[in-house]
Amino acid sequence: MQSQLNAAPTDLTGKVCLVTGAAGGIGHSAVSHFAALGATVYATDIADAFDGPANYRSFNLLDEAGISACTDWIAEIKPDVLFNNAAIFDMGSVLEADLAQFDRLFGLNVRAFYAVLQASAKSMVANGQAGSIINLASQAGHRGEALVAHYCATKAAVISYTQSAALALAPHKVRVNAISPGVIDTPMWKDVDALFAKFEGKEIGQKKREVGEAVPLGHMGDPSDVARAAVFLASDQSSYMTAQTIGIDGGNVLR
């Protein structure tokens, strides 16, 4: 006799999903995937306009007023799912990466990230929602890199906050997990490639080609690879999963 499977749905109908950093390649793909699965999607970025299936608001999360306005908005929309994705990248070794760069990267990648996480968590707890918080880390958060000191440190902080928040929110049935992408072919890679060309003396396009070829699977990832992992973490498919960081990196980092 064939056994009955207790298959959890990936359908997101009825869920309110919030995506930060929505104008970038990964954020935009997450918005599209959440909406396609029936969610009501709210999205934010610093850009004035957004082309996608979402209710959009622009906030500058490096500005105190922007953070305050965004957290007030979160209290209004009451998200069931947060895709905490907004971040910036820059380069410089410990001899070159100054405190201005530190303040900018930690200001968005950690301080604003935490403010959004906290506001979403407070809303979920206050409204009795069994929510899911999905933080965007990076393979850079698992190891230092000579030219990416501040960025690596910010993403290590994301992984640590994910674990702490998951333990704190577990009694409230709010799950907190992270995704660590590897090299993903987004528009941001044009800027990243130019920085490597500057610091390593490479030709434009050389670094992007090299990192793709170095991935065990042989190529860079696509934003949709990350978005599909976000769908899994947003849905009931991952209902017994919290405090974890999923690597979407083609085998770059062995955990």
Rank of each mutant, 00 (worst) to 15 (best):
N127L: 04
G128E: 08
H142G: 11
G221C: 08
P181D: 04
T245S: 14
A36L: 05
E213N: 14
I88W: 04
A115W: 02
N84G: 07
I88M: 13
R104C: 02
V192I: 15
M91W: 11
D72H: 07
D72C: 00
T13N: 06
G141R: 03
L61C: 06
Y56P: 00
E145R: 12
A197P: 07
A140G: 02
L169T: 10
D98V: 09
Q101W: 01
H172F: 14
E200Y: 11
L195D: 14
A234M: 04
D225V: 06
A100Y: 00
N84K: 05
G144P: 05
L99P: 00
V231W: 01
A168I: 03
T162S: 07
D51A: 14
V94G: 02
G24L: 06
K122R: 15
S180E: 09
R175L: 09
I179A: 10
A87H: 11
L12K: 01
N252E: 12
A112G: 11
H172A: 14
I74Y: 01
S224T: 12
D80W: 04
H28T: 10
C70M: 11
A43N: 00
S239Y: 12
D80L: 01
S160V: 09
R104G: 04
F50S: 02
Q237Y: 05
I204G: 00
E200F: 07
V176E: 03
N127H: 15
S120A: 15
V231R: 03
T10C: 05
L167F: 07
W73R: 01
E64L: 10
Y114S: 03
Q206D: 13
N177Q: 06
I204E: 13
N177E: 08
A146M: 01
P171E: 07
Q206I: 07
C70K: 00
K78V: 14
Q101F: 00
G221D: 08
R111A: 09
A243S: 13
L18F: 13
D98I: 11
M124E: 04
I46S: 12
S58D: 06
N109P: 06
T242C: 11
S3H: 12
P187R: 03
A234Q: 03
H150W: 15
I133H: 02
F113K: 08
S32E: 15
E145L: 08
N84T: 09
D249C: 08
